[in-house]
Amino acid sequence: MTTGVPTPPRPTRSRPGKLRRIIPLAFVAWFVLEIWLLTLVADAAGGFTVLLLLVAGAVLGGVVIKAAGRRAFKNLSAAVQQAQDGALPQSPRPGEGSGLVMLAGLFLIVPGMISDAVGLLLLLPPVRGLIGRRTERALERRMAAAGGGDGFLGDAFQQARMRRPDGKVVPGEVIRDREPAPEQDGPRPPLTP
């Protein structure tokens, strides 16, 4: 028996993309390769040497992350000071920020030979600069494709939107230049287009 009320269509599930299928397999392959390399080094140099390498990598990674965090905090406080003085804070050039250095420290902390090699490569300034420039260009392309506009963040701040209770999106901003009036005879009627 039907009641005359149409049933909403079922949401269709999108098929997972290639990247969603490849990433877990890549992590498993990386994990297996790391274990295999550790066993090869343990056979050649001994288990104690492998343990020392893993501990040294973790300690070096912690030192790198700590130094990068201090530098990031120093850059942040300098930018805040510049903003308080009325000057525009300068953004670091690609590869000069602390993000890739922290990522290098994280790779050094993760046990394994490949992750240590990647971490050490990321500590080299030319490699960080190259990766930083490529990442920034890729992010700019994605932002432009998503309608982000001209700059790095484009018009992201101008695309702020308010959602009404009926689900409609209204672009704009709210500017209050006086105190709200006290409530009169009940709530205000809803806005209608």
Rank of each mutant, 00 (worst) to 15 (best):
123 L>R: 05
81 Q>D: 02
122 L>I: 02
29 A>M: 07
89 P>T: 03
98 S>L: 01
90 Q>T: 15
59 V>G: 08
68 A>Y: 05
46 G>L: 06
75 N>F: 00
38 L>W: 09
76 L>A: 14
90 Q>A: 15
95 G>N: 06
18 K>T: 09
103 L>C: 15
88 L>V: 11
61 G>P: 03
43 D>C: 01
53 L>G: 10
126 P>T: 03
39 T>Q: 13
58 A>H: 05
63 V>E: 07
97 G>P: 03
55 V>Y: 07
37 L>D: 05
130 L>D: 04
66 K>Q: 06
111 P>Q: 11
60 L>W: 01
129 G>I: 09
42 A>E: 04
70 R>H: 07
18 K>P: 04
115 S>L: 13
18 K>D: 01
129 G>W: 07
100 L>W: 09
45 A>G: 03
36 W>R: 08
124 L>I: 11
106 L>R: 03
67 A>D: 12
114 I>G: 04
53 L>Q: 02
89 P>E: 04
110 V>K: 06
80 V>F: 04
119 G>E: 02
53 L>N: 01
23 I>S: 10
22 I>T: 09
70 R>M: 05
124 L>D: 00
51 L>W: 12
91 S>V: 10
35 I>S: 12
78 A>D: 15
98 S>V: 01
68 A>G: 15
107 F>D: 03
98 S>A: 14
50 V>F: 02
45 A>P: 01
46 G>I: 08
22 I>A: 14
113 M>A: 11
29 A>N: 05
38 L>A: 15
21 R>F: 09
88 L>N: 08
128 R>I: 11
54 L>F: 07
86 G>N: 06
107 F>R: 02
89 P>M: 05
43 D>E: 13
128 R>M: 09
125 P>R: 07
112 G>T: 10
39 T>I: 12
38 L>E: 11
